[in-house]
Design a protein around this nucleic acid. Structure first.
Lengths: 253, 253
DNA sequence: CGGGAAATTGAGCATCGTCAATGCCTGTGG
DNA sequence: CCACAGGCATTGACGATGCTCAATTTCCCG
């Protein structure tokens, strides 16, 4: 799989390249800031409905930014590889998320982005995107919003990595996903985590074993129910309480 | 101190509001993408040479994004306050850095930004900035670059917080500052850290005591010299070696 | 020069990483 | 249809890293 993955594999379930019923860019073009004409024009520049399969790379670290992709369905992870081979997952992408933003600074992708499961993407070539910006200011406005949101999210992630105990990070993580699922119209109380325990650990800075123990503890506290990757949030309050039942932590409340 | 800090406190050392010899926005207007006319016009919209004093707030978390500020001189920190009162420093800003980017997503500042020492800023009102974008595409391009760079930096910070030992984070931190000082024309081998040990800890996810111990260890290894806040980098290679002399870590090489 | 904040350093122990054994689930081939 | 293999998850034991608490020294500013 290579950088061109989203270009070479049109998703057969998408009948038309232009009238893409599932396209997450519609969140952009339906914005009030778009005129119908500019929306149509923008839409024509998009490569619609590219499919990637589990483990495919959407882009590689070190390659130049060729296109922005937006996720229609499925899930992606973005990873940095450290000096010692440490894997850090910098984020998970789901429907509506734009992939490739960390390359905007220098034009070179800093991370690998990989499909966690089969996914559908829409993309727009970066040079084309830059041309459109001057014609359609709304595009720029929406890109700014996405980038600002990503900055805020990674700052929160830093706080979680830096200042929270393992169990708190887990609770935070589950609630982050709960919110994000709600934002795309799924249940915020019952959802399937698309990644495995190892990958949760690589995002939260924890070992696989610690993640597993933490989830078990939350379940014992009757705060959540776990069925493999399926999570049911039973009691948000209990989630935070469960975190504070360990010896030293009681003092902190 | 309040959100309007940069508006109400013109720096007397700046003689003119328009011809600001020290303005870090000159990095923008001198870009090849600016025509002389647009550079002049942009420059006229900037509030030049506002001074903030140590401990002043440049903006408060929860307030709306009123302006972008760029740092001319001095240093700022941006902080998130957690549920338990934990302080997370999400970044330090120095000359050329734009402050307020994490508010672009939702229009509300997510962090407090505070001067570590007396500083000089230039600012531009956000609504005005947005108006200018359509007239001067170069502005947008440069903002994008800054935001993309910030995303990449916070992802690296996540990796550091998540996957590195205390001493590695410190080495990483010192080298990050070394690079950034070099980028603004200062020595990369000898510089003064503007923040205190506690604040290094709040950025790196370490306790003050751990920071202090780590620095001492690097000094004992003859990798750096410490004189209070003044750091001399004596041997980059030894910095990384020093990290690996503790018991368990030898195995990892 | 003196007072208070910041930094260094020490001792003890909690959290979490490491290593390892076991259990569960799925897909495959006999 | 069942056995088996391989990946993934759970759970246990143990020890190291780094946090907490605290004493002391150094630095900075009035």
């Amino acid at each position: 799989m290579d950088t061109a993955a989203i270009e070479v594999r049109p998703d057969p379930s998408q009948s038309s390249r232009v009238d893409c019923p599932n396209c997450a860019f519609s969140e952009w073009t339906s914005s009030a800031r778009f005129t119908p004409d500019s929306a149509r024009y923008f839409n024509e520049q998009i490569v619609h409905g590219s499919a990637v399969r589990r483990h495919d790379y959407v882009h590689h670290s070190g390659t130049s930014l060729a296109f922005f992709a937006v996720v229609n369905s499925g899930f992606l992870k973005s990873t940095l590889i450290g000096r010692n081979g440490n894997v850090q997952i910098t984020g998970f992408s789901m429907r509506g998320d734009v992939v490739g933003l960390d390359a905007v600074g220098g034009g070179i992708h800093q991370c690998d982005t990989i499909a966690l499961q089969d996914a559908s993407l829409c993309g727009i070539a970066y040079p084309r995107f830059q041309q459109l910006v001057s014609d359609i200011p709304a595009i720029q406005y929406l890109l700014n919003k996405k980038m600002g949101t990503e900055i805020a999210r990674s700052h929160r992630a830093m706080a979680s990595l830096s200042a929270m105990y393992a169990d708190e990070r887990l609770v935070n993580f589950l609630l982050e996903f709960s919110e994000r699922f709600a934002a795309i119209g799924c249940s915020k109380l019952r959802f399937r985590l698309p990644m495995q325990r190892q990958e949760i650990g690589e995002y939260l800075g924890l070992q696989l074993a610690t993640v597993s123990r933490g989830l078990s503890r939350l379940q014992e506290a009757d705060a959540i129910a776990i069925d493999g990757k399926d999570i049911t949030i039973k009691n948000v309050h209990k989630m935070w309480c469960a975190v504070e039942t360990l010896p030293l932590r009681k003092a902190r409340c």
